[in-house]
Design a protein around this nucleic acid. Structure first.
Length: 465
DNA sequence: ATGTCC
């Protein structure tokens, strides 16, 4: 495969074989991933209706069909397709940041107690329920339609929270009728739970401010304590993805669609299968947003009790979504998988007070390193998208073999990071050495013109899924 | 990511 470096932060995969557009990878030579991920970028470029390029962010790595860190837009009017693999199994997985009215030195004497209480208050782990009193399964329909808005309406949050959520807390077009009974069954008992894998709730502190004006507008200052929550749509999103991949895999031949990898199963956006998936995907997206809202409320109650400090929502973003967006007069289905929407300054989708500064974006790093706050910039080259995390370099298996969970906990604690894990195996799979350097990933994103860097945060304590 | 295989 021919990879041409076009600028210090931009590589091009020339069109070859059935590719309809080129591949464009925003990265640096030392962040370039395994060949297989680049192959996936090229495979995505064969999808019917794809426009401009198959894009990849600096945290690019191998995924199911589509690479993680991939952005692909299809033109709906030109037979453009939607593909569940372009969103990922964890539909609407995302990140929110809450800022405490508290400095890290004020928290220090109470950190351990705070972490103990967050540990108890955060349902998590594989399969394990983590049920919230909010919905019985009868109320799940409202969660699927109204997302975080329903949670706030029920008293789990304040109206201002919704101004600080992408899509004001609920995606339009959710169709609970397209969510199977199995998905509902799995989802009903997991509302308000963190999950496992790389999902976490961290107490962090702001250690660097790169853009003082934007940081102030986001409500962030040096030394401030924050809470970052990274989670998704749990078994419900997983079930929906599996079912719709299967249905599209069967339907593709009828639409005359041929893809180089069955994991790219897709159907025209404007088809029964396409509409069914998008309706179910939006429902899962709303579930994910309600989930993050409820976990925020749990954290707020703990903070209030232990420190007396309030937590203000800075923003909430998804990094696994497909959205119907207007670009240059065309209605496009923009898939972002392990990639974050980053609206530029003055975009109508921004709340008025953030309009001059662009949309906040959060990049969760790894447990031992750092996380970043970014902002959307004008003229973003990939449909206003940027990276979503550090990006894996080791498989879960490799990571787990490299260190015992208890040893990792000890090492982190020795560096002053309080760890509350739900499983030792899960903790070892998330060892910081399994990931790229998040600072380098962010620098590549900034260099490529995808985003601006606003602030850096380091973990004080981690509640691990 | 995920009742780590319907």
């Amino acid at each position: 495969m021919k990879l041409v470096q076009e600028t210090p932060f931009r590589f091009r995969i020339e069109r070859h074989g059935p590719m309809r557009v080129p591949g464009v990878v925003f990265t640096t030579p030392d962040l370039l991933p395994e060949e297989e991920a680049l192959r996936q970028v090229a495979n995505v470029a064969t999808l019917p209706g794809i426009v401009r390029a198959s894009y990849a962010m600096p945290d690019l790595h191998w995924g199911y069909g589509f690479p993680i860190g991939g952005v692909a837009a299809t033109d709906v009017a030109a037979g453009g397709v939607v593909s569940p693999g372009g969103v990922g199994f964890d539909i609407s997985c995302g990140v929110r940041l809450l800022a405490a009215d508290l400095l890290r030195e004020q928290l220090a004497p109470r950190l351990n107690r705070l972490m103990d209480e967050l540990d108890l208050a955060t349902p998590r782990g594989l399969g394990r329920g983590g049920v919230w009193p909010l919905p019985g399964s009868a109320q799940l329909g409202r969660v699927l339609r109204e997302g975080a808005r329903y949670a706030v309406e029920q008293g789990h949050g304040v109206p201002r929270d919704l101004d600080r959520c992408e899509d004001q807390g609920a995606v339009a077009g959710a169709d609970p009728a397209q969510v199977s009974g199995r998905a509902v069954e799995r989802g009903a008992v997991q509302v308000g739970s963190l999950g496992s894998g790389n999902h976490f709730l961290e107490v962090q502190a702001v250690t660097e401010i790169y853009d003082a004006e934007v940081a102030a507008a986001f409500g962030l200052r040096l030394g401030q304590v924050c809470v970052m929550i990274h989670c998704g749509s749990r078994g419900l999103g997983h079930q929906i993805c599996s079912e719709h991949v299967r249905s599209m895999d069967k339907a593709m031949a009828r639409y005359g669609i041929h893809v180089p990898d069955r994991q790219l199963a897709c159907a025209p956006v404007d088809s029964p299968e396409g509409r069914a998936y998008l309706g179910a995907m939006a429902a899962a997206a709303n579930y994910g947003r309600a989930n993050r809202q409820l976990l925020s409320e749990a954290a707020r109650r703990v903070f209030e009790r232990v420190t007396g400090a309030a937590l203000d929502l800075v923003y909430d973003v998804s990094h696994n979504m497909a959205k119907l967006e207007e670009h240059d007069g065309h209605r496009l289905c923009v898939h972002r998988k392990g990639a974050t929407l980053a609206l530029p300054p003055h975009h109508p989708g921004l709340p008025a007070d953030l309009a001059p500064f662009g949309q906040p974006v959060f990049i969760p790093g790894t447990m031992g390193t750092a996380s970043h706050v970014l902002t959307g910039v004008a003229d973003g080259p990939a449909f206003h998208s940027t990276c979503h995390g550090a990006g894996r370099v080791q498989s879960r298996h490799q990571a787990a073999r490299s260190i015992q969970g208890r040893d990792l906990r000890d090492r982190l604690e020795a560096r002053g990071i309080a760890v509350r894990a739900s499983s030792w195996r899960g903790l070892s799979e998330e060892t910081p050495t399994a990931y790229k350097d998040v600072d380098a990933v962010v620098a590549a994103g900034v260099g490529a013109g995808l985003c601006g860097n606003v602030a850096r945060l380091v973990p004080l304590g981690v509640v691990k899924g």
